[in-house]
Amino acid sequence: MLNLVVEPSGPVNLEALDAALRAALGSVVLGVSAADGGVRIHLRADASPDAAAQARSLAVRHDPAALSPRQQAERDRSDQLAAARRAAGGTLDPDAFADPRLRALAQRVVWLALEIEALRARLGEE
């Protein structure tokens, strides 16, 4: 295994750096580690000098604000959820429904919404 030690100038988004390295260099990348402000890039022992140089260059130019595909998907999901919450507006009023079946259904929806809010509060989510 080839270990490259890089001293980044700022904070590191380890997952995003890992994703960028794998996207650029493929299976020669085994991963990255972080400790004491430093980063180690782990490459397969048969990594070429060019691959090592490219890995080092990517790490030095690393932007911690750039997200990995998984982080981006998670952020997108979170944004969609927040938008859906805003769009849902105020509380559903079961009494607004004349049909008893619809009123019962609305009561169930209100109950489920309250249960979810309680769970989110317990998890510390806003």
């Binding site: 380890l14 991963g31 580690s33 400790a35």
Partner: peptide
């Protein structure tokens, strides 16, 4: 301090 890794092969845990 925390240490972290994304390595899918065994690597030294720093420190």
């Amino acid at each position: 301090a925390n240490i972290a890794t994304t390595s899918t092969a065994f690597v030294d845990a720093p420190g």
